[in-house]
Amino acid sequence: MRLLLMALIIAMAAGLAYAILSLPAESAGLSVYTTENIAISGVTNPVTAVLLNYRAYDTFLELGVLLLALLGVWSLGSTATASQRPSAPGPVLDNLARVLVPILIVVAGYLFWAGAYIPGGAFQAGAVLGAAGVLLILAGWRINHRLVGLPLRISLVLGLVVFAVVGTLFMLTDRQFLEFPPQYAGVLILLIEGLATLSIGIALAALFLGADPEEDDN
């Protein structure tokens, strides 16, 4: 059986390799179009221009995917068993968290800001922010009781909602959804990315935590 499977997969790989090698050696893809419009995209980093302007709708839905995954994880309930309860962090972890978390937050802020002109952006920054959250969770830090309900949920949906609201606002002025006027595009992208960074970071840390902290309290 395994030999047959191996043979099948090797045949598939060979076919794919042949297909890829048959592609033209030169292709500009869409880079001509992306370069032509970069001046009115609001940013100078072409990848950010694609993510937050030309194909912003993909990015918008993808923030939805992240939120949805968290909803799915929360709907599964608690997975923690007695043996998985966190033990008190040792002094090394505790001090490491104290030193690293502020640095990570600064790095996240820089990455988000830099995304407009060099590689970086909301997802990279959100990932670093999420890492800071994971470190805090490992070090035994838990979110304040007063913040676990609605405030936490609002922070999770903020990126998606502001994205949608900004996109919708311009529909009222005879534009399409997510069609930013060039003169405001830069500011709007910065606003959306900033809030998306926050939501992404919190969502990633929450995914690591597993169950809904509100339900864990009860």
Partner: peptide, 24 residues
């Protein structure tokens, strides 16, 4: 495969989208 000019950014953006989907 853009022959000297900067690489096509569209697939890069697609990969970032794909990574977020994969993480989720």
């Amino acid at each position: 495969r853009t022959q000297g000019i900067a690489p096509d950014p569209v697939p890069h953006a697609m990969v970032i989208t794909g990574i977020v989907v994969a993480v989720s």
